[in-house]
Amino acid sequence: MKLEHLLFLVLVLLAALFGYLSLQEQPVHAQGVAHPDHPAMALGGDAASRSLPILGAGLAFALLQVTFFGGLLLLGLRRGDHERVFPRYLPVAGALALLALAFVLLFVSYRGQAVAGADVPTVLGFPPATAWMLYGVWWTPLALVALYVWRFDDWVYGDWEQARFAELVAAARQADETAARESAQSAEQS
């Protein structure tokens, strides 16, 4: 399967997931309700009734996004349509697996939290699921940043590409000059 086909397939699955969610009945507080004491503030209400019935769909939504984003990163690393990029797949896929793991742990923590309500411990200042979001989902992509910096010359733009691009620019400028000269000559003749 080509990378573009995989990306398209993920998009179709995301669209199907949106369709599935649209057919599910929403509780009144699905998107929050007004706070009784503070009018500019909203309340989430009972987590178990609004989130647990669609927890699986939510996890699928998150993991499909991770897959799509990973595919885009590889699309950006590819040179030409036919180059074999397998050596780049493994480290990028490994780094993406960390992000996927952070999402899975977030959902697992949230399932416990939704039942426990206010009676949850705090981890680094936040409830466990929120901590996975802030410290896991936010920071695990840093492994990909490290790969980008470390492998830039090999994977993105190295000496060969620089030399090839310099040739392309020189050819383009020469063509521009020739066109300008011919245009000036024809103007003189007319």
Partner: peptide, 9 residues
């Protein structure tokens, strides 16, 4: 929680 008052989706 991780989704705030807006919810998961």
């Amino acid at each position: 929680g991780p989704w705030g008052t807006l919810g998961m989706v």
